[in-house]
């Protein structure tokens, strides 16, 4: 689904990603582990070109996203992203956070007042369904500043879902949360995993990684140094760097 070919990212003289070639297949749940500074977040953010790769290609839906002529916005609609800091739109209510992009993008294609009203009602009904799913429909008209961290992140996840993405990228979704709120967010991600959503997750939650991943990538120094099923990576690590990493975090 996403083909990463010879991806390199350089900041000044610092090589963050060093000629990475990797493929994310449909239905996969790829978890990326690694020490801080290993390039795992940068790798994730290059997948939807939130960071522009220095060289290399990202092939999604048969198009090279690094090509400046490609309409990146169109492709990002199919690639949800969930941030460490949630990044809910502060000036929009919870419901508007979810409906903003679908409405803005959908209404451009629809003419006629009745059709537009019908489309708007449909998008809003869908947003309410998503909010009910995470038990926050009562909060639909509240602003994000009134939500707890865990609630914000769950809204951020359904905001991504509202676009019906083919893949969701999670950038350390629980790192900014109080410990007691981590569970509710991970549970929601696990539900999506069970429903077959393709996802790429950067996380430090080892138990969660082992449970949810279909494949684990271990990154260090801008390379993917080892990868495999959770059992292979966690129970039989081969690379010394991975062994050292696991001995510290497990």
């Amino acid at each position: 689904m996403i083909d990463v070919i010879d991806l390199t990212k350089v900041y000044g003289k610092l090589v963050v990603l060093d000629h990475i070639t990797e493929t994310i297949h449909e239905g996969e749940r790829v978890v990326i582990l690694g020490p801080s500074g290993s390039g795992k977040s940068t790798f994730l953010r290059c997948l939807n070109c939130m960071e522009d790769p220095t060289s290399g290609s990202i092939i999604f839906d048969g198009e090279d996203l690094t090509d400046m002529k490609v309409d990146i916005n169109l492709h990002r609609q199919k690639m949800g992203m969930v941030f460490q800091q949630f990044n809910l739109f502060n000036n929009k209510t919870v419901l508007e956070n979810i409906t903003l992009a679908p409405l803005h993008i959908g209404l451009k294609k629809i003419k006629g007042r009745e059709q537009r009203a019908a489309f708007k009602a449909e998008v809003e009904a869908n947003a309410h369904r998503l909010l009910q799913r995470i038990g926050l429909d009562d909060w639909a008209d509240k602003y994000p500043s009134t939500l707890s961290g865990g609630q914000k992140q769950r809204v951020a996840i359904v905001r991504a879902l509202a676009m019906n993405p083919k893949v969701i990228l999670f950038d350390e979704p629980t790192s900014a949360l109080d410990p007691e709120m981590v569970g509710e967010v991970l549970d929601l991600i696990k539900q999506l995993a069970h429903e077959g959503m393709t996802m790429v997750i950067v996380t430090h939650e080892m138990g969660f990684a082992r449970e949810v991943a279909s494949r684990v990538l271990f990154m260090d120094g801008g390379h993917i140094v080892e990868q495999g099923t959770p059992e292979e990576v966690f129970d039989h690590p081969k690379h010394p760097r991975l062994q050292e990493f696991l001995s510290k975090v497990l």
């Binding site: 169109l74 990002r76 809910l88």
Partner: peptide
């Protein structure tokens, strides 16, 4: 304004201007 706001908008496929 937190740069994350712009990132979040771009990440759901809205243009820079929107």
């Amino acid at each position: 304004v937190d740069p994350g706001q712009m990132e979040a908008g771009r990440a759901v496929g809205l243009s820079f201007g929107t």
